[in-house]
Structure formats: C-alpha cells, structure tokens
Amino acid sequence: MAVNRIEQKFADLKKEDRSALVTFTTAGDPDYDTALDILKGLPTAGADIIELGMPFSDPMADGPAIQAASIRALKAGMTAAKTLQMVQEFRGLDQTTPIILMGYYNPIYIYGVDRFLDDALDAGVDGLIIVDLPPEEDAELAIPAGQAGMGCIHLATPTTDEDRLAHILKNATGFVYYVSIAGITGTREPDLAPVKAAVDMIRRQTDLPVAIGFGIKTPENVYNFAKIADAVVVGSAIVNIIEVNIDQEGLAKPELKSRVLDFVGTLSLRKGKV
C-alpha cells in the first residue's frame, strides 16, 4: 500500500526528531531527461518527500513560476503517462522516498480515474494532491483513491474553520497540507503566528502529519516553519532556479541540475538543527 511509504517516512523522521523537507518540481521541466535527473538527485540532496507536479495547461492555483514550469513541460511533450513513467524510473533507484503527485483534476479525469490509480500505484506513486478537488467532490477521486490504497492529501487553508476542517479530514489520508496563505503559489511569505494557530487547530482534530506550503522560499523559512509542522514544502523557489538555468532555446544549461540540488541542500533539515 502506497500510504505505507508515507507513514513509514514520517515514523522514521519522528525517530530522528525532525520534520520533513518536501520539494516540488514539475515533471518534464524543462524536459523529461533533465527532470528525471533532478528527481533522482533530490533524496540525496535533502528531500525527504517529493512532490512532483503534473503539468496542466490552466494551473489556476499557481503563481507565475509554476505556471511557467507547466508550460515548459507541456512544450517539451510531457503527459500524464510520461509523468507516471518518470516515477517508475525513479523507483528503480529509490524505494523509500514518498512521491506525491500534485496537479489538477482534468488530466486524471481524462486518463480515467480507475486506470490512473492502478497505473500510478504500479509506478510507485504514494499520494495525490489535486488542487481543484475540494471535499465536496471527494466521490470523484478521494474515495476511490482511498479504496485503492493511494494517499489522498487534502488541503486546509486560512479560510478553513473548525467545522470545515472536520469535513476536509473525512477522506484525508497520508498527511494534511496546510496552505499557509490565501493566495497562489510562490507569492508572499506567510506569517508564523497564524500558521502555527492553524496547525494547532488541525492537530486537535487529526493524528495525520501536517505539512506547510505556499510562499516558503529560503533556508530560514524552512527552518522556522519546520519547528511548527511535520513537513515543509518548497516549490516555486526551486522551480525559479530551473527557470534561470535554461538557455534561450529552452534547453537546460549544463549546470542546471547541480544548481537545483545545491539549493535543495541548503534547505535540508538533516543537520539535526530542528
């Protein structure tokens, strides 16, 4: 069961008494081979959990950085099937790092929900975060995913109150993703105090681990938010490094991979600091 890899990871980290660094990159950005290379390097560089973006033509919840990443990946020919293939290739090397696919519902809906869940589990995907599926639409994917043993990570946000949270948690598995700002990815930095209050509220209602994401950009941000949550997600800041390391033809510069992985190294929580 895919959920087990997520549970195992959080259990291991608990023993180390630290939180998880979750990195986000978009599958196929800037091309399949470079993205796979980055993916393979992430666990060693410091990623404890990998969020892999499934590119979509209309990423409504994303800011400019991840929008651009999606467009680059689609231009390079990325598809849902190739995203799963990429995960499968990664699993040839790494059996323990959880991989969570993050994206929008339409490509999964068109792939076919049941077939997608089968293929994603076969490929070694552990969980899904689908931004445009609130709990009102759990019957679409969250419930079948739960039955198949695929983690279905639900989002809580600054607009979530206690009653709403109970509703969100009903079919939530894996962990809870707290969206730390009301807004899109990669924009303003969240304040610590309201995020801590929200994480505390979530913890009063569930034993699932809590991750924090949106607007977390620097090693200092990661360090500070890691103190109040089980996992911290960095996305746009990593994707920005990809963007500045491609040439005018959209091809990866030779130093792209090492630049990305070096940056992830600075974010790593493995130093026993937290």
Partner: peptide
C-alpha cells in the same frame, strides 16, 4: 456542473 475549486475558495 459541480464545485471544482481550490479549498481556499470553498467557504466563500
């Protein structure tokens, strides 16, 4: 139809 929006918008 339905309500396929991000969670931030749902309460609204």
């Amino acid at each position: 139809g339905g309500r396929f929006v991000s969670e931030t918008l749902m309460p609204l």
